[in-house]
């Protein structure tokens, strides 16, 4: 599949490809969805106030799909992404990640899943201001227990892939918003995860930078990864193969590949 990726193919080297095989080993059955959400509710309690952010969400994403979750502000998109990213657990319903029920996992397991299998891209970039670009990118590798020289090698390769080879020692404050988001994307793909979760990745960017980010996501999708893109923007959602619309915590419609949303 490396011949499909147009940009720097060195991340798809043999060793990382092996890791992919390894990870999927317990679930060799073809067709097990990467994401399987069934009847998920999420209720936030603050004092006596209860907010149902998700009200029975069903969602299935197959391996290698590029799905956009679209809805207005406050519709529960971020809440859904936090559950998909194992950052939060549903109040009710089940979420299976590549067939594993998240509820059965310990906190350590979840940390490992986030570390090895998921790459996050946030609207606010979430870079550590005191660290240089490559030191930000290496963080997931640090928690994966990878040795320093290897961390640096992979971080630089990842930064090169997002077109920031000449900015590796710059701190976030010395980079433009678009460059910062590309650093965040380099960080998301440095562990070579199956699943990329992007929550309004273009929300804070100008149209040119937003185009760069979407191009990178498309590129990642082409190289075999599952991508879930969260947005409130129809045009952005159009980049995906499939659009899932969400409103008031409920999924409105799922359209198959090619069936574009028109509003």
């Amino acid at each position: 599949m490396s011949d499909e990726g147009p940009a720097a193919p060195d991340l798809r080297s043999d060793e990382t490809a092996e890791v992919v095989v390894d990870r999927t080993a317990p679930h060799p059955i073809v067709g097990v969805p990467v994401i399987e959400v069934a009847g998920v509710w999420k209720t936030y309690r603050s004092g006596s106030l209860e907010v149902d952010a998700l009200r029975g969400v069903d969602l299935c994403v197959d391996r290698g799909e590029y799905v956009a979750v679209m809805g207005p502000s406050g519709s529960g998109k971020s809440t859904l992404m936090h559950i998909l990213g194992c950052l939060d657990v549903p109040t009710a319903g089940t979420f299976r990640l590549a067939g594993d029920d998240v509820r059965s996992m310990s906190e350590e397991d979840l940390a490992q899943v986030r570390n090895r299998r998921i790459g996050f891209v946030f609207q606010q970039f979430n870079l550590l201001a005191t660290l240089s670009a490559w030191r930000n990118v290496e963080l997931p590798l640090l928690y994966a227990g990878i040795e320093r020289a290897e961390r640096r090698r992979r971080s630089l390769a990842s930064l090169e892939r997002v077109g920031l080879a000449d900015r590796v020692d710059h701190r976030p404050g010395e980079l433009s918003g678009g460059q910062q988001q590309r650093v965040a994307m380099a960080r998301a793909l440095v562990t070579d995860p199956d699943l990329i979760l992007a929550d309004e990745p273009t929300g804070n960017l100008d149209s040119v930078s937003a185009g760069d980010v979407l191009a990178l996501l498309a590129d990642l999708h082409r190289s075999g990864r599952t991508v879930v893109l969260i947005t409130h923007d129809t045009e952005v959602a159009a980049a995906a193969d499939r659009v899932v619309r969400i409103r008031d915590g409920r999924i409105l419609a799922g359209a198959p590949v090619g069936a574009r949303e028109v509003r």
């Binding site: 990213g85 940390a111 490992q112 986030r114 570390n115 979430n126 963080l139 928690y143 994966a144 960080r187």
Partner: peptide, 16 residues
């Protein structure tokens, strides 16, 4: 808090 959250999101365990 943000930094800690981010580190956890990237795979840091409570122990780390």
């Amino acid at each position: 808090i943000r930094e800690i959250g981010l580190r956890k999101a990237l795979g840091a365990t409570p122990r780390v």
